[in-house]
Amino acid sequence: MSMVKRPKSDFWTVGVVPERIDLLSPERLLELRDRIVWMPEAGDWRYYADPFALRDGDALHVFVENFDYRTKRADLQRLTLNLSDGAWSAPRPVLQTPFHLSYPFVFEHEGQVWMVPESSQAEEVALYRAVDGAERWERWERVCALLPGVRAVDASLVRHDGMWWMFYAVIGPDKRDQRELHVAHAESLQGPWTPHRTNPVRSAHDGARPAGTPFVGADGLVTLPVQDSRNGYGGATRWVRFSRLTPEAVEVQALPATFTGDLAHRDFASGLHTMSACGDVTLIDVKRIDRSRHRQWLDWKRRARRWFGKR
């Protein structure tokens, strides 16, 4: 009698690396491993991932995906790191919707705070704006859809040479989101946005799906962290550099360096799939794999709740 295959569950943890993203290399990340400040664990059968941050003095506000295996859905939360003493605040809710959310890409523009979360289940790339109030960044309003009707994931934005650029992947058959990089451009943040006429601009399992903050290097070229999926989803991160980025043509090359989880954490050595920039620190997430059969029990209970809920 064949044994039932043990389920494979990914668990992520978030760390703050004391180095600018453009100065990082795999060797530098390993050198800094013991200086990384790790976020508290999310709890039983939950995890935090996809970190992006805003800084206010010694307060580093880190926005994360809060995933729960009991529902197989995530919302967005914020934890604040006091950079002077390394203490973390309790998590606070940021955004909750009827559909799954992740990848809370936050940024500042024209004196306001914006967010483009991953919301592919809603079939759109949507722009949100923080609403002023007593609590900073506790309330968000949906402004518009930047790419309506598109099942895009991990949209990452940058303003360069007077234009806005968006890098994203698209959900599709045969793990399309792990092997195709797409680009869109606009003259203003709220659009209209135009998908590039040469999409996908890169097709390769070794680096396509966006994995963090695009940045402009000393050479004036845009560099984008992307997932290296050759060893499975979230297995590693590398960078691609755009030697040409115009509405007419895109030329992009993968850089050879690869960032892996073992460089940053001894116990979460199975993957690294986010590198986001916030001034003189870089945020990462790294992965461990759990093969406990308790996951099967959680999956059964979730299906039972869904089934009985439809009765």
Rank of each mutant, 00 (worst) to 15 (best):
F259K: 09
R302W: 02
A277D: 14
G162C: 11
V16W: 00
D174Y: 01
F52R: 10
P91V: 07
R311T: 05
S102E: 06
R293I: 03
Q96G: 02
W45Y: 15
R151S: 09
D177F: 15
A74M: 08
A269Y: 01
D285M: 12
L54P: 04
M166A: 08
R244N: 04
E27Q: 14
W45L: 11
R302T: 00
T282Y: 06
T282Q: 07
L157H: 07
L81R: 15
V131E: 15
V183Q: 05
V4Q: 06
R266P: 00
V62Q: 07
S89T: 15
V150Q: 11
E41I: 08
R305N: 09
P225Y: 02
A264W: 04
P7Y: 02
R302M: 05
D44A: 10
L32T: 14
Y48H: 05
A186W: 04
E31C: 09
G43N: 05
R244L: 12
E108K: 05
G43M: 06
Q121A: 09
R142Y: 05
L255F: 06
W239C: 10
H196S: 13
L157G: 06
Y103A: 03
R129K: 13
R33D: 02
T13W: 00
L76K: 06
A218C: 02
Y128W: 15
L83N: 03
E187A: 14
S25A: 10
R306V: 08
Q227R: 13
L29S: 15
R305S: 07
Q227W: 12
R28S: 14
R73Q: 12
D299K: 10
S120M: 06
L83Q: 14
Q227P: 05
A42M: 03
V106G: 12
R139N: 08
V16Y: 00
Q178T: 13
Q296I: 00
A186S: 09
D206A: 11
I36F: 07
L181G: 08
D50F: 13
L23Y: 12
A59Q: 11
I289F: 10
D10K: 03
E135I: 13
D132L: 06
I284G: 10
M166Y: 00
G261I: 09
D299A: 15
I21N: 04
V250N: 04
T282V: 10
G191D: 04
A59H: 10
L24H: 11
T213V: 11
E141R: 15
K287F: 10
N199K: 07
A152T: 09
P148C: 01
V16R: 01
W193H: 07
D262L: 12
R179D: 07
L32P: 12
V183T: 04
L224C: 04
N231S: 13
G162N: 09
Q112W: 11
S243K: 06
L83W: 10
S2H: 14
Y233N: 13
Q227S: 07
P225S: 03
Y48N: 00
E19G: 00
V37N: 01
F167Q: 01
